[in-house]
Write a protein that binds this DNA or RNA. Structure first.
Length: 199
DNA sequence: CACTAGATGCTCT
DNA sequence: GAGCATCTAGTGA
C-alpha cells in the first residue's frame, strides 16, 4: 500500500516517482512510463490555474485521488492528484505498458497493436476502462481502481524530461517525465497555438 | 517510417 | 462561441 505523503509534494517532484508504478482497474493493470506535472495555481497550463470549477474540484482535494477530464470530444484523461489537501496539483498519466489483463484491454482498444494499447492519455484510460463514474476515487484505498508500487524499486529507473505535449502556455517548461528508452512513450507534439520555442 | 487534417463534445467565458 | 493536457486515418516515401 502506498503512502499518501509520497504524493503530497509539488507535482513536478511527485511526477518522476510515479514512473514504474502500476495503475490497476480490476483485471487490467498498466505500468506507467510517461507522466506530466500540472502545478495548479503556479502553472498557467493547469486546468486548476484559474481556481476551482465543477470540472476540476477533485484536484483541490487530498492527494492520491483520481482526477478525470473529458478531452477533444472523445477521450478521458486520468491524473493522480498531488500536493497537500486544499492545494491544486496533479500528474497526467500519459502512457504505460499493459502488464495484466491484455486481452480485455485489447478488446476495449478495438484490437490495437500491443505497443499502442495504453500509449497516449486517451488510450490509457480506454485500455483501463476508466470514465466519468471513476471521478474522484481514492487510488490508495482498497477499491477496484488503485495505484500500486511497481516491480522496479524507486531510483532504479532512468528518467528523461522535456516540455509537455499540446499545451499552449508554459510550452517550454520541462514537466514531462518518461522512462528512458521505453517504447511505451507517446510522441512529442507542440501545440500549434504555443508561441515559438525558446532558444 | 513521418507528417497532416479533421472529427468531436465538454467546459468555461 | 472559443478553446482545447487527443486520436485516427489518410497520404507520401
Amino acid at each position: 500500500m502506498l503512502d499518501a505523503d509520497l504524493l503530497a509534494g509539488p507535482a513536478e517532484q511527485v511526477a518522476p516517482l510515479l514512473l514504474g508504478m502500476v495503475l490497476r482497474h480490476g483485471e487490467v493493470a498498466v505500468e506507467l512510463t510517461e507522466v506530466e506535472a500540472y502545478a495548479g495555481p503556479r502553472d498557467p497550463a493547469s486546468h486548476a490555474f484559474r481556481g476551482p470549477t465543477p470540472r476540476n474540484d477533485v484536484m483541490f482535494g487530498p492527494p492520491g485521488h483520481l482526477y478525470l477530464y473529458f478531452s477533444y470530444g472523445m477521450h478521458w484523461a486520468a491524473n493522480v492528484v498531488c500536493g497537500p489537501d486544499g492545494t491544486a496539483g496533479g500528474c497526467l498519466l500519459r502512457s504505460g505498458q499493459v502488464v495484466d489483463g491484455a486481452d480485455l484491454a485489447r478488446g476495449r482498444r478495438h484490437g490495437a497493436p500491443e505497443r499502442d494499447l495504453a500509449r497516449g492519455p486517451g488510450r490509457l484510460t480506454q485500455a483501463l476502462g476508466l470514465a466519468r463514474e471513476h471521478r474522484g476515487l481514492d487510488l490508495l484505498a482498497d477499491g477496484v481502481v488503485r495505484l500500486e508500487p511497481g516491480p522496479v524499486r524507486a531510483g532504479e529507473i532512468e528518467v528523461l524530461t522535456g516540455p509537455r505535449v499540446g499545451v499552449s502556455s508554459a510550452a517550454d517548461v520541462p514537466w514531462r517525465f518518461w522512462v528512458a528508452g521505453s517504447r511505451y512513450v507517446s510522441a512529442y507534439k507542440r501545440s500549434p497555438r504555443a508561441p515559438a520555442p525558446e532558444r
